[in-house]
């Protein structure tokens, strides 16, 4: 816990890493100053894109002592205002799951390679990013903790599958490779409370190490203080649970 007599300092900047297929992709890196060793967290951004909110989340995690890294998962699609880029990606059916998984894998390799890394890497995402981190936790074996926040479309019907999203993520449940913290709002429509229950039951049936929390007064995106859907008490408690979880799993 931070106390007022402590020194603190972070460095935050845009860097470039090589993602899926060796493609250079922009990545926001925020890290505590000092030699470490520090645990790391990858942030998989949400539907509205690689935006200011996710940069703030990245800096917040660095402030709490993590090497925090957020790759631009839309970097290949276009550049411009984050909303304009996200609108173009939305019109194009999103980005492919394979490409996102490769980019997140590359981010994990990069951050683990830093001399200030303690070797432990967690991953956090909200909305479509929540879906991506669950999928990454199942398909990759490089994470020590997963924080899935209201992942939409973790459970997909056959008619929702596309060439870019060809498999419903919950099909991979048995392959989950790391402890998972799930945060959800009961007023959310994607995922619905019924889908959250199904997701939890499937994980329990597979014997996975999970911790689910539901907030009765919260809807979708309740961490988003720049939007009307922000829910203060749920967000404060959610951040607290997340930092406690990461502190235990990445020490």
């Amino acid at each position: 816990m931070y106390t007022t007599e402590q020194y603190e300092g972070i460095i935050a900047e845009t860097i470039t890493i090589n993602g899926t297929g060796g493609d250079a992709i922009h990545t926001y890196l925020a890290r505590p100053m000092g030699p470490g060793p520090f645990p790391a967290v990858i942030l998989a951004h949400h539907l509205p894109g690689w935006d200011e909110l996710y940069r703030e989340f990245t800096r917040k995690l660095a402030h709490h002592g993590y090497l925090a890294i957020s790759p631009d998962l839309y970097c290949r699609e276009a550049h411009g205002a984050p909303e304009d880029v996200a609108a173009a990606v939305r019109a194009d059916g999103g980005v492919s799951d394979d490409q996102v998984i490769g980019d997140l894998d590359a981010a994990a390799k990069y951050i683990r390679s830093l001399p200030s890394s303690n070797g432990k890497v967690g991953i956090f995402g909200t909305c479509s990013g929540g879906r991506h981190v669950f999928l990454a936790g199942c398909r990759l074996d490089c994470f020590d903790a997963i924080v899935e926040c209201w992942g939409g479309n973790v459970i997909m019907s056959d008619d929702q599958l596309t060439d870019k999203q060809p498999v419903s993520p919950n099909s991979y449940t048995k392959d989950l490779n790391a402890p998972l913290l799930g945060l959800f709002g009961d007023l959310d429509q994607s995922p619905t409370p019924e889908q959250v229950n199904q997701h939890e039951e499937e994980l329990k049936a597979a014997g996975k190490d999970i911790e689910f929390h539901r907030y009765p007064e919260a809807g979708h995106g309740f961490f988003y203080f720049d939007r009307p859907i922000y829910h203060q008490s749920s967000a404060v408690d959610g951040w607290s649970k997340m930092l406690t979880f990461l502190g235990k799993k990445l020490a």
Binding site: P48, A87, A88, A91, H220
Partner: peptide, 21 residues
Amino acid sequence: NVSYDHPFNAPWEYGLNIDFV
């Protein structure tokens, strides 16, 4: 482009979004 998805600004979880591009 006409989507039924999260709006960027309108105050609800889902909306009908039209982008003339």
